[in-house]
């Protein structure tokens, strides 16, 4: 599979999928804990930033890493 196909057809949709959830997650946390800056909010905002940077630079490992990072955070939060 060539680089273009992997990045454009698979990794970018995955990052966008994660970004949808991460963005809503961040807004929800900011709304429900407005006075409390906690670990989850900081990590969630960092994940949103990382996903955006990955989307902008389109670096293969950053795209994979940011998606895995956020999905791992989501699993932790759900559990």
């Amino acid at each position: 599979m060539n680089h273009h196909k992997l990045v454009e057809h698979y990794l970018i949709p995955t990052v966008l999928f994660c970004l949808n959830i991460a963005f809503v997650h961040a807004i929800y946390r900011l709304a429900t804990r407005p006075m409390l800056v906690d670990f989850e909010i900081i990590v969630c905002l960092f994940a949103v930033l990382l996903l955006c940077v990955a989307l902008y630079t389109k670096t293969r490992w950053l795209l994979i890493g940011s998606s895995v990072f956020y999905l791992f955070l989501l699993l932790l939060v759900i559990n």
Binding site: F23, V24, I27, Y28, L30, A31, T32
Partner: peptide, 10 residues
């Protein structure tokens, strides 16, 4: 309706 007005706008 779980994340305030910001989430509703989103």
């Amino acid at each position: 309706d779980y994340g305030g007005l910001g989430l509703k706008i989103t």
